[in-house]
Design a protein around this nucleic acid. Sequence first.
DNA 1: GAAATACTGAACAAAGCAGTTCATTTATGC
DNA 2: GCATAAATGAACTGCTTTGTTCAGTATTTC
Lengths: 207, 207
Amino acid sequence: MNIAEQVIKRGRKYDQVLDGAWLVFRRDGYEGASVDDIAREAGVSKATLYSYFPDKRLLFLEVAKGECCRQAAEGAEHIACGAGPYEALTITATRMLDFFLSDFGMRVFRICVAESDRFPELGREFYENGPALARARMVQYFHQAEARGELKIDDKQLAADQFAELCKADIFPRLVFGIGGPVGEIDRARVIKGAVEMFLARYGVKG
Amino acid sequence: MNIAEQVIKRGRKYDQVLDGAWLVFRRDGYEGASVDDIAREAGVSKATLYSYFPDKRLLFLEVAKGECCRQAAEGAEHIACGAGPYEALTITATRMLDFFLSDFGMRVFRICVAESDRFPELGREFYENGPALARARMVQYFHQAEARGELKIDDKQLAADQFAELCKADIFPRLVFGIGGPVGEIDRARVIKGAVEMFLARYGVKG
DNA sequence: GAAATACTGAACAAAGCAGTTCATTTATGC
DNA sequence: GCATAAATGAACTGCTTTGTTCAGTATTTC
């Protein structure tokens, strides 16, 4: 299946190690995760682990990069389908919130923030494979919508950033700081509707 | 000066310890800061430190709480002064960005995110003494502005959250993930103008 | 100036950590 | 079935960490 990979990094339990490491890292963070824990969780001896990766730091980087790429691949579905801008934006906002609210999204964000001193390249990697891609896709959509006379946007990049940010209103601080229980469907709908309406009030073409 | 405090927590170098601890914690994070470092930085022996605080965890909590309160006190200046909504919102946005962009704001945010598992109460403390206060003040301003016929807002809380979020557009991700160098005055002006214009397009009363 | 209190510095125990080593076992290729 | 490569596990080094202890020194306080 992946002969090339097995040649490059010899060993059949390579993926096992990565999976276990990702599990432990996202559970305990970088410092909190001990190599013994990772080896145990991966069902692999520590010696095996160290035969793949020279040290903990590089293991972490490899895990994080892999996750970023996987995330980018999954998010590759196009952002906006047909219909009018109201529907397209609503769908986009829903997708974004799905990501923010997912356990995965939150973990990745937390780790990036916490370890960006130790791993400067990590934040960049995540940003370029996540938010930056989404933004590029939005800008592209804005061009099309503008050509159709649905929207009128001068600074499209800023508009994309604004929309992404609007989707986080209320919800994001609550998540990040752990306030007020789980975010319900009602909260989500309120924020999404608010974001779309605000965006269209600014950039929509009346008609 | 503060006799009461000195009675409660005896010892003359109490504040020295708090100051040193805050310095080291914000520089190295919770795990990264060693008690020896803190004691050295505070100019105090480790034994003295441990005579004030039973353990590292509680020292950190005390430091963090103190900083949150101090921050709340400093931010108590009223958010919006006279003039029209455009000017008032611009001033508010500028203040918010000042905080986000400050070394202090970023540190606090990073620590809250990183340690919110270990210290659940910390995120709440910060949120209620910071963002929540600012929001309350904005909601209050919205009421006044609406009474003056300047704005028209149904869900004022959401509007406040949206505005705060708009101020972070582009800038916040760049800071958090360490992308693209320092944020310049031009970037700031662009985002602030964009936030105010978008907000007024949605909630402003045409005239 | 003397008694009470706060502080120091250095050593200490106990635990946890990353990373190494190696004799032994297991799987793989031919 | 045999040779080679991969994996094991357990012990071990060396280091850092938190938190304690205590004999001695500085600072208050009256």
